[in-house]
Design a protein around this nucleic acid. Structure first.
Lengths: 212, 212
DNA sequence: GACGGAACTTACCTTGCGGTAAATTACTTA
DNA sequence: TAAGTAATTTACCGCAAGGTAAGTTCCGTC
């Protein structure tokens, strides 16, 4: 042995394990900083490894991003689908969806923002894939919001678009607040959302009968 | 004359005019791309000028950002203050605030996002200044949200914090949607928000027992 | 019609990033 | 114990960004 001059060589970390480490670190970095501001050196440092290794495991920066995106997207899409799935839209549907999202995200809350990154190279495969995910999720929400608008007598298609947009960003906002309050459990967070919804409802002078 | 070898020299644009041009272009670029992703060369190209000129007019990249931030922040803070100022919080206060924001932003809608840029160097003067602005605006909103929560019987201070957070991001979301629909006038946008609020209120039934 | 300042560019430096080729070390097994 | 392979680093390239120093052109004016 005697003074190993180089730090190269295996560190005894099996491939699959390392893969997971990298994915976790990258998801966190991408989720907090955003694709553009995130740097491979920073991710590598989190893992305690060299930038080069990331390339060898995942290829290009965008490839790595995709590798983070896919599992998160699948998990969230699935969660929302089952949360909305069974019975039609009721008043508790939004809360049920939120709770399912919080639960699915627990342990890696920043992952949400990997799905909705605005700083992606617009022409790349990552952006396309992300767009697929949130358009799929939006479609699920579309039913609910349409019902909602019909109930209050608005037929404007732009209203529907705006409402979907707002709902999506509202979820993002709640998750972002949640990230800043790590002690909050998914259940506690859901209850908090319920209270906030109630407060918000009090804000608007009650119109007509909700949802038939 | 005969073949001017260099394109240097004055283009006959007076200093103040040029200043405004640069500020407008920079605000747009920073607002759409965000501080990190925005590049000085890109801004310079918008103006039809060289990167160097930007430095000569405004100094460093962060300095330029600050020069964009300050007028926007002042204008918005002022607008919100007067919109909330007179009578206490009523049911129409949020809409009045929104309308004032839309009006103040008309002509440069992306400017909003200069105020709420998350990709700023965290330790810099720009971030500090931006934080001052939105904490000042948040303080204005604090009164309203507190009333709201008290009305629904929540005393949790974290609820108040979350509500402020959500409200701020809601505004950002609406502005973002608005940016994507350039034909929408401030007034039309305000009316649309009123309809959306009504729909959202319909969603939450009377402040009954949350979570079934 | 030469002079001086205002407006602008050319040319350059440095840094940090994404990305690749070629070592270097450790683990396994025959 | 030596070969072979898996895991990792060193050393490098190219590029684009932020930033600076030194010009170059234009314009009014005496």
């Amino acid at each position: 042995m005697a003074t190993p001059r180089s730090k190269a060589g295996t560190k005894g970390v099996p491939r699959q394990h390392r893969r997971q480490q990298i994915l976790a670190a990258a998801t966190q970095e991408f989720g907090t900083r955003g694709y553009a501001a995130a740097s491979l050196p920073a991710i590598a440092e989190r893992v305690g490894v060299t930038k080069t290794l990331l390339h060898q495991y995942f290829g290009t920066k965008e490839d790595l991003y995709l590798a983070c995106l896919v599992p998160v997207g699948d998990r969230l899409l699935d969660t929302v689908r089952t949360a909305m799935g069974r019975n039609g839209t009721t008043a508790h549907t939004p809360l049920r969806v939120l709770e399912s999202i919080f639960t699915a995200l627990e342990g890696q809350r920043e992952a949400w923002f990997v799905l909705y990154d605005t700083s992606l190279p617009a022409d790349g495969a990552a952006a396309r894939r992300a767009a697929e995910y949130w358009s799929a999720i939006d479609d699920l929400a579309a039913g609910g919001t349409a019902d909602l608008l019909r109930a209050t007598g608005s037929a404007d298609p732009l209203d529907a678009d705006a409402l979907r947009y707002v709902w999506r960003d509202l979820v993002a906002t709640l998750v972002r607040w949640w990230v800043k309050h790590p002690d909050e459990s998914p259940e506690a967070m859901t209850r908090r959302c319920a209270r906030l919804f109630a407060a918000a409802a009090a804000l608007t002078p009650a119109p007509a009968d909700p949802l038939g």
